[in-house]
Structure formats: C-alpha cells, structure tokens
Nucleic acid binder design. Structure first.
Lengths: 133, 133
DNA sequence: CCTAAAAATGTTATGTTATTACATATCAAT
DNA sequence: ATTGATATGTAATAACATAACATTTTTAGG
C-alpha cells in the first residue's frame, strides 16, 4: 500500500515548508509561509522559495499560477504524472486537485494536433464549490 | 462579416494599450507596456493596469497567469465566450489561442460533476511550438 | 575516517508585479 | 448646467520573486 516511488528525504527547510502546506486549509503565498516559519528561524523569502522549488520538483507541491500561491499535493503520489486540474473556490478558498486522465489526454491530443511538444500544463478552474453554492 | 457584438468605444489609454498588444509578437508584461507608452505620456503602472482591466472585461485582452503577461485576443470576436486554452512556446515565446469547444465542454462537465459553479478557466500549455522543434 | 564535490542554507540587496489612496478631469443623461 | 458615473493622473506602498555571494552540511569516493 506504500507509494511506489521514493521521494528523496526532505531537508530541514523543505520539511518545514511542506508541513506548513499540508496543515493549511487553503493555498498559501510564499510570504505567508515565511511568516509562519519565522519562529523556526526563517528570515528571508529565498529560504521559502528554494524549499518550494525542490518540493515542486519532487511533485509534493504545486503552484497555483492564478493565485501566486502554493498547495501541497493531495495525490499521495503525484510523481511524474502531473495533476490534471485544480478547482479553486472563490468563496472559501478551498482547492481540490483533480487527476482526470481524459482531460490530460485531451490536452495531449490538442498539442499533438498542432505539433506542439507539451512540457507542462496549467489548468485552474475558478468558481464556487459545492458547499458554497 | 462584421462582429455581431459591439464592444464599447475604447478610451484613449485603452486604445493605446490595445494597440501595443496587437502589434506585439509575444505576451507583454504591464511594465513593458508602460515602457513602450512613456513617449505617449504614460507615467505610472496604474495607467496600464486600469486599461488592461477594461480590455479584459471587454474580452479584447487575456492575461497569461503563468507568465504574468498579457496578449491581445486573436479571436476577432472573443466576446462572452472564453478562450479555451493558450499554447505558449518556451523557445520563441509565441502564443496561440485555442477555442476548442470540446475542451471547454469537458471542463464544464468536470465542474458539473463536482457541483462546482464554474466562472472562469485558466488553461495554459507550455512547450515547444511546431517551428521550434 | 578524510576529503573533495555537490547540495543546502544564510543574508543582503534588488528586481518585478500589482494595488491603495486620493485628486482631477471627462463624459453622458437628464 | 448639474449631477453621477467613468476615466485619468500621481505618489506611495504592498506583494511576489530572484541575483549574488558567503558559509555550512551532506554525500560519495579513496
């Protein structure tokens, strides 16, 4: 039942940032994370951004481009395969991460059709979630 | 053959910003636009951001969230209906705007399925365009 | 274990993107 | 003409992100 890909062991700052994101109930900006971690000795934005870069590389964290904010991956193993989409509630700020295979495949076909070598996709849906409607 | 929706007449600053974006061969940041327009009397970012806000409201300009940059709409009439997606070349910076109906409908179904009231979608594909491969 | 290379961290400064706040001017409809 | 709404001008500041450089920690090979 354990994840079949072994992420590297997280370094101190990476772990701290990851923990903050996992505990958060909404996406956090890098500076919000910094504020939370001042007590643990963080002093500068770069400490956060460097940790975030690594965590994103590991697939443990995603950036929401339309919010300039970050969320922990909710797919226990989001390795290699990208998330398909995020649904972002404008009311309660909740975010849910979808792993829709058909969407991914549709986007892949779209790109193929234009001879576009697809590297990375950003799909962010804004609206109101079930609870807030 | 004319567009069936009448966009409002553009105000001076809106027209200036729109012209810059239409002439550009790549997405431009607000500050790049500001630099171009200094000769026409622009002095402050807000002059650009305000014009951009209106142009986006009119559907004449889109923001690329993953680049913090703006492009003129290439659908002569992108009124009401959103663009489905943007393909952004990392090599030559060219952007093409897709109006894929099936993608839009797929995203709509995804949202419906989660009882998510969809307001706006951001779909940005990064990679290498046909010419740059 | 020791050491050299690589990775991670600390710190300051700066660059880039976007908004707040407030004043003034223009436009459109009575 | 007066009024209310929209657009503009300007300064200051907030919010997001990276460059450059010094130091420490980790890792892998001898």
């Amino acid at each position: 039942m354990s994840s079949h890909a072994h992420h590297p062991v997280l370094k101190k700052n990476q772990k701290l940032v990851q923990d903050v994101l996992v505990s958060a109930c909404a996406p956090l900006s890098a500076y919000s994370i910094l504020d939370v971690l001042r007590d643990q000795g963080f002093r500068a934005p770069l400490q956060v951004y460097r940790a975030l870069d690594k965590l994103m590389e590991f697939g443990l964290v995603h950036k929401l481009e339309s919010l300039n904010a970050f969320v922990a991956c909710t797919h226990d193993a989001c390795e290699a395969n990208e998330p398909a989409a995020f649904m972002i509630c404008e009311e309660c700020e909740s975010v849910s991460e979808l792993g829709d295979t058909r969407l991914a495949s549709h986007l892949g076909k779209l790109a193929d059709h234009e001879n576009f070598a697809l590297k990375h996709t950003t799909v962010e849906l804004h609206g109101r979630c079930k609870n807030c409607s």
